[in-house]
């Protein structure tokens, strides 16, 4: 058994004639945090969404915990997985969105317990007990009965994290989890993510928070124009930027990033 939670091999993605990802090869070790950075339109969100199977790679393979995701084989022999196989692989992955995407007609508790009941088949009380523990974990036990519209953005995002965690994923994907938040509210979400990383969760995080990438990421991947230009330790990526494109991108962040690296 490999110690890689995610292995992407020759992954490409096209929307019509537009090439969004070009031959991406990337591995994420179990228990490690990889942060994807890069200018907008670089393909970092698309790569993450391919790993979540919200987009389907045009070609290439993605292994999740050693299991193929969505397709078996590559090239001419590529065929779709059965829905049951796909569900099984996807159940290892938890996804957190930029826009939270909580269901507005359910309370925080309802959002977190829904899949436990409907997908995992738990009884209502069992599901709610477990959901309550997850809400406690993100510090929102007192808000269990609140609807999303009654919660701040930071609280909504923490509920969304609890919703994903409730299903016991081994990998958590974050798509710009703090980009829709006021700077004030960003901190509470990042600290939940820091804790999660410290507990040894495998995480892939698309982010503009260079400070977070530098301090929490074990690896930082830099994408530009659909290509993965770097996937290395934060030190290697931030301290001596070699690629002009990376240097240019980091210029806007360097002050903040350097501060975090002391």
């Amino acid at each position: 058994m490999t110690d890689h939670a995610i292995v992407a091999t020759h992954v490409s993605k096209q929307f019509g004639d537009t090439v969004v990802l070009r031959d991406i090869n990337m591995e994420v070790e179990r228990g490690k945090v990889s942060c994807l950075i890069g200018p907008s339109g670089s393909g970092k969100s698309t790569l993450l969404r391919c790993i979540a199977f919200l987009e389907q790679a045009t070609s290439g393979t993605i292994l999740v915990e050693g299991q193929p995701l969505g397709f078996v084989g590559d090239g001419k022999d590529r065929r779709r997985q059965s829905p049951a196989e796909l569900r099984k692989v996807r159940s290892k992955i938890g996804m957190v969105f930029q826009q939270f995407n909580l269901w507005p007609h359910m309370t925080a508790l309802g959002n977190v317990s829904a899949a436990l009941r409907r997908v995992r088949g738990m009884s209502r009380s069992e599901a709610e007990d477990r959901a309550m523990r997850q809400l406690d974990h993100v510090g929102l036990k007192e808000r269990a009965g609140h609807y999303p519209s009654q919660l701040s953005g930071g609280q909504q995002q923490r509920v969304a994290i609890a919703r994903a965690l409730a299903l016991d994923p081994t990998i958590m994907l974050f798509d710009e989890p703090t980009s829709a938040l006021d700077p004030e509210l960003t901190g509470e979400v990042l600290s939940v993510m820091r804790e999660l990383a410290a507990e040894g969760m495998t995480m892939v995080v698309v982010t503009h928070e260079i400070g977070f990438a530098a301090s929490v990421g074990h690896k930082v991947a830099f994408l530009d124009g659909g290509k993965l230009l770097f996937h290395d330790t934060p030190e290697a990526v931030f301290q001596k930027p070699r690629e002009p494109r990376l240097e240019q991108f980091l210029d806007t962040y360097l002050d903040r990033g350097a501060a975090m690296l002391k």
Partner: peptide, 13 residues
């Protein structure tokens, strides 16, 4: 919103 459906897909609905 499409995202609400994607979130449901991601938790296995």
């Amino acid at each position: 919103p499409v995202g609400h459906v994607e979130a449901a897909e991601c938790v296995g609905f």
